[in-house]
């Protein structure tokens, strides 16, 4: 079944991937199977599994360098049951663009059947929020190509043993930002607001969302929506990382939930220019759910073990500002009024 993105020609059609109403409706078939060698409790691997399931068998995955390449995809034990290709750390957006362009040219020529194929490029926070940002931005400008960029954000260069990235939280301990006796806080940069930046900066993009694997059905449905709506789309996932965040692997889901419940990771989607908060984040905005103190989230992780009260208060204030002072809470950070 296909849906028209634009009525111009067949090559712009996407697969219609209706949302799954609850976990019992999710099919059993897996396209990200055994063989990956990621850490116990790795939520990025979980995200790959959910993404592959959500996209289904007619998908091509392009994986830029990162955990989900090096730890995940080695010959003889590759977990992918759909076609997968490595692309450079900085080129997830470019590779996806090229693949989509090729499929379109070949379908138009009659070298391939005119059946829509999902093209999904995955990148980590290093590949997405740091090195590959310009390529993703460029891909999001090619509005006539159907592709999804999925950013799996474990908040560090985890594959190379946890170095700070532009997506690492303020103050987090990493091998490049180890707290010391003289300097306690080495990473003074605030986490990049990547999804909202891309949504605001590319208003013709029809779908941008944030997800968290702690809410797997929502995450899968977000991927399905992104693939169905067509054009270039972007999904940003926060993935708790036991090794990088320093906690017992059994708490991965709990930490994902806490990231949302403390307001640190707002869940939202921007569809056709319309912003919607999702799940618990929606309830926070509506006043139905009181944000938990960030202390509950920070104190569960070894990467913040060096924080003193002052640091936690600073963190809390930044989050409070994000919800109370921003133009759009949790999304667009400009304070002030449009008609002063």
């Amino acid at each position: 079944m296909v849906a028209n993105v634009e009525t111009l020609d067949d090559f712009l059609k996407t697969q219609v991937l209706d949302p799954w109403k609850g976990p019992k409706k999710v099919p059993a078939a897996e396209y990200f199977t055994s063989g990956h060698r990621t850490c116990q409790g790795c939520e990025s691997a979980q995200l790959m599994k959910l993404m592959a399931k959500a996209g289904g068998p007619r998908s091509i995955i392009l994986g830029s360098t990162g955990c989900m390449y090096v730890a995940n995809t080695t010959y003889y034990s590759t977990p992918w049951a759909v076609p997968w290709m490595h692309t450079q750390l900085g080129s997830s957006g470019s590779a996806a663009t090229g693949t989509v362009a090729a499929l379109r040219a070949m379908m138009r020529k009659g070298k391939m059947k005119k059946e829509p194929i999902n093209v999904i490029a995955v990148c980590g926070d290093g590949g997405g929020a740091d090195m590959g940002l310009s390529a993703i931005s460029a891909a999001l400008q090619h509005t006539h190509y159907n592709l999804l960029i999925l950013l799996y954000d474990n908040e560090s260069y985890a594959n190379t043993d946890i170095q700070v990235s532009g997506s690492s939280p303020y103050g987090a301990n990493s091998t490049f930002s180890t707290p010391g006796k003289v300097k306690r806080i080495m990473n003074k940069r605030w986490k990049k607001n990547t999804a909202a930046m891309l949504a605001a900066g590319h208003p013709d993009v029809r779908y941008v969302s944030t997800v968290c694997t702690a809410y797997p059905v929502d995450a899968m449905n977000s991927v399905r929506r992104a693939l169905t709506i067509g054009g270039p789309t972007f999904v940003h996932s926060l993935d708790p990382c036991p090794k990088g965040w320093d906690y017992d692997p059994k708490f991965s889901h709990e930490l994902g939930e806490l990231a949302v419940e403390t307001g640190i990771w707002p869940l939202y989607e921007v569809e056709e220019g319309q912003l919607r908060m999702i799940g618990r984040s929606k309830r926070i905005v509506e006043g139905q759910f009181k944000r938990k103190p960030v202390r509950e989230y920070l104190r569960r992780q070894g990467r913040f073990a060096h924080f003193i009260d002052e640091d936690i208060e600073y963190f809390q204030k930044k989050i409070d500002d994000m919800w109370e002072k921003w133009l759009i809470p949790g999304v667009i950070p400009f304070a002030g009024k449009l008609n002063p």
């Binding site: 090729a102 070298k111 391939m112």
Partner: peptide, 11 residues
């Protein structure tokens, strides 16, 4: 990188 993605898709 675009050319690589395209070539791998058979173009």
């Amino acid at each position: 990188s675009v050319a690589i993605g395209a070539s791998a898709a058979g173009a």
